[in-house]
Amino acid sequence: MVSQPAGARVTMPGLSAQAKQADVRVTAIDPRTRTVRLNVAVRDATVNLKLSELLAGNDKQQNSGWRVVLGGVDVRGTRVNVNGQGLNIPNGSFSASRTQDGALAVRGRTTEGELNANVVVGEKTAPTLTVLMWTPMPAF
C-alpha cells in the first residue's frame, strides 16, 4: 500500500507537520501483535514539535491498540522546530536531510548553541522499540 499525497499535513498533540510531498509505504501488518510497519519518505517539509505535549501523550493515544513502527525514514529538505518548554530542553530550529550512509543529518541551533548530529533510526531488542542514536558532529 502506497500513499503519495501532495501537500500532506499531520496534526496531533505536540506535533504539526506539512510536507510538499510524502510517501508512506506499509511494509508489514501483524494482526497478532497489532503492529503496522511503515517506510516513510518526506520532501520539503516543516515539522513543529511541542515536546511537553508530544511526550505526555494521552489515554486515547496510548490505548489505541495498534503500534506503528518506522522501518525506514527518508527525509530531504525538511525544517524541524522544537519547543522544549517545560522539559528543560532548549528550543531549537533544525534542518534535516539524508546522508550518503543513510543517517539523518540534523543541523541547527538551540537557544543554548549549535547542534549538529547524525541520527540513525533503527530497532533494538524488541521489534516495536524505535531507538534514536545521536552522534555529535564537530561544529565548524
Rank of each mutant, 00 (worst) to 15 (best):
M1G: 15
V2A: 11
V2L: 08
Q4L: 09
P5C: 12
G7H: 04
A8P: 04
A8S: 15
P13G: 00
L15E: 02
S16H: 00
S16A: 14
A17D: 06
Q18H: 10
K20P: 03
Q21E: 06
A22H: 07
A22W: 06
D23S: 12
V24R: 06
I29G: 07
D30A: 04
D30C: 05
R32W: 06
T33P: 01
T33M: 00
R37G: 00
N39E: 13
A41N: 02
A41S: 03
A41M: 00
D44Q: 11
D44V: 05
T46I: 10
T46M: 07
T46C: 02
V47S: 06
N48T: 12
K50I: 13
L51V: 03
L51G: 02
L54M: 01
A56N: 07
N58S: 09
D59S: 13
K60W: 03
Q61H: 05
Q62K: 09
N63V: 05
G65N: 01
W66K: 04
R67T: 15
V68F: 15
V68Q: 09
V68E: 11
V68M: 12
V75F: 12
G77M: 09
G77P: 11
T78V: 08
T78Y: 12
T78K: 04
N83T: 14
G84W: 08
L87A: 01
N88F: 14
I89Q: 09
S93T: 08
F94A: 08
S95G: 11
S97R: 14
T99F: 10
A103R: 15
T110Y: 04
T111C: 10
T111Y: 08
E112D: 14
A117M: 07
V120H: 12
V121S: 03
G122C: 02
G122P: 01
P127T: 03
T130E: 09
T130G: 12
T130Y: 00
W134A: 08
W134K: 14
T135I: 10
M137S: 11
